[in-house]
């Protein structure tokens, strides 16, 4: 007997409810940000208007928003796939970074396609050990994947300075990739990389695959109820490994696309934490394809608009950190409840 009136809603109100829940964190963030702005003597409405204009007010700004959203589409999707299988992979950052370095290095010598493939393989490599540890010994993947991020950060730093450093550059960076190996821009001169198309195609594939493929089915069931899945003959350990490897491949490909399409080399500051923002994207988007796109665009818009807003206002970047930080707090609460 059902006690909770929400447990059997019709479809319309269910969509409304989940839409409402997705918007709540953002509204609260706006309110908190507004309070901070008021307290520091700024006009919140004017600032929010500015943010909207800087996010979507014109082709160049939309290009900037999508450009900032692109790495988040990759990392959000990579995270969502693992989460969907019930694996809390927080190592997407590491996959993205190693994928970026590998892609940038391989593309130098072997071109665009090889760079992308190598990047994806590097991402697979990063997620392989935590995947095996989780599937074989049930070692908590949160710990192992988090640690793998640190290992990758140290490894890439060492590889660059010891072997891959560009000549004539004081800072830690690999050589500039030749133009022939770049991912082409979509909207010259606004610099929107075609990596965004790769990401969107992957998201669409994910939407279909997770719903209609045999493996997607097993992945969903494993995430919803691993005990049930095991009892029905789904090889849960194998599904977990596969989900982690796919997650790693997408993360690594994202890094390669970022290197080949945007930065054109691997440098210090290659990823300002795309993998971690990707966790928030996946959580807010409830691991769905549409949700990942919306979440990535939201954080992308905040990042790009928050930067250029400084051209028109004295309000420091910190206020944008307050906004995205508040949204992330909700994402973390959701993570905690999922766990």
């Amino acid at each position: 007997m059902s006690v909770c009136p929400r447990s059997n809603p019709d479809k319309y109100s269910r969509v409304l409810t989940s839409g409402f829940r997705a918007v709540v964190p953002f509204v609260i963030a706006l309110v908190i940000g507004g309070a901070v702005l008021l307290a520091t003597g700024h006009n919140p409405l004017a600032f929010y208007q500015l943010l909207v204009r800087e996010s979507f007010g014109g082709t160049d700004r939309i290009a900037a928003t999508l450009s900032a959203a692109t790495p988040l589409l990759f990392t959000g999707l990579a995270t969502a796939i693992a989460f969907r299988a019930g694996v809390f992979n927080v190592g997407v950052e590491g996959g993205f970074v190693l994928g970026g370095l590998t892609g940038a290095t391989v593309a130098l010598h072997a071109g665009l396609l090889a760079g992308c493939v190598a990047g994806a393989l590097a991402g697979v490599l990063v997620s392989a050990l935590p995947a095996w540890l989780k599937a074989r010994w049930n070692v908590d993947e949160v710990v192992t994947t988090l640690m793998s991020n640190f290992v990758v950060a140290g490894l890439t730093g060492w590889l660059v300075t010891a072997f891959l450093q560009a000549k004539g550059v004081a800072n830690s960076a690999t050589p500039l990739i030749p133009r022939s190996a770049w991912l082409p821009d979509l909207l010259p001169p606004y610099g929107l990389t075609s990596g965004v198309l790769i990401a969107l195609v992957l998201v669409m594939l994910y939407a279909v695959w997770i719903k209609h493929s045999v493996l997607g089915y097993e992945l969903r069931q494993t995430g919803l109820n691993p005990r049930f899945s095991a009892a029905q003959g789904i090889r849960v350990g194998r599904v977990i490994i596969v989900s982690m490897l796919i997650s790693g491949a997408i993360a690594g490909l994202g890094g390669a696309a970022h290197a080949l399409g945007v930065v054109h080399r691997f440098v210090d500051g290659f990823s300002p934490g795309y993998g971690f923002t990707g966790i928030a994207v996946a959580l807010l988007g409830r691991n769905s394809a549409v949700g990942v796109v919306l979440g990535a665009v939201l954080f992308g818009a905040l990042a790009s608009a928050g930067t250029t807003a400084q051209l028109f206002s004295d309000i420091p970047l910190d206020i944008v950190d307050v906004l995205s930080g508040t949204v992330m707090v909700f994402a973390v609460i959701r993570l905690w409840r999922q766990r």
Partner: peptide
Amino acid sequence: IESSDVVAQGEQL
């Protein structure tokens, strides 16, 4: 102008 992602946002910024 500060950016948390100054490397990748260079072009648009």
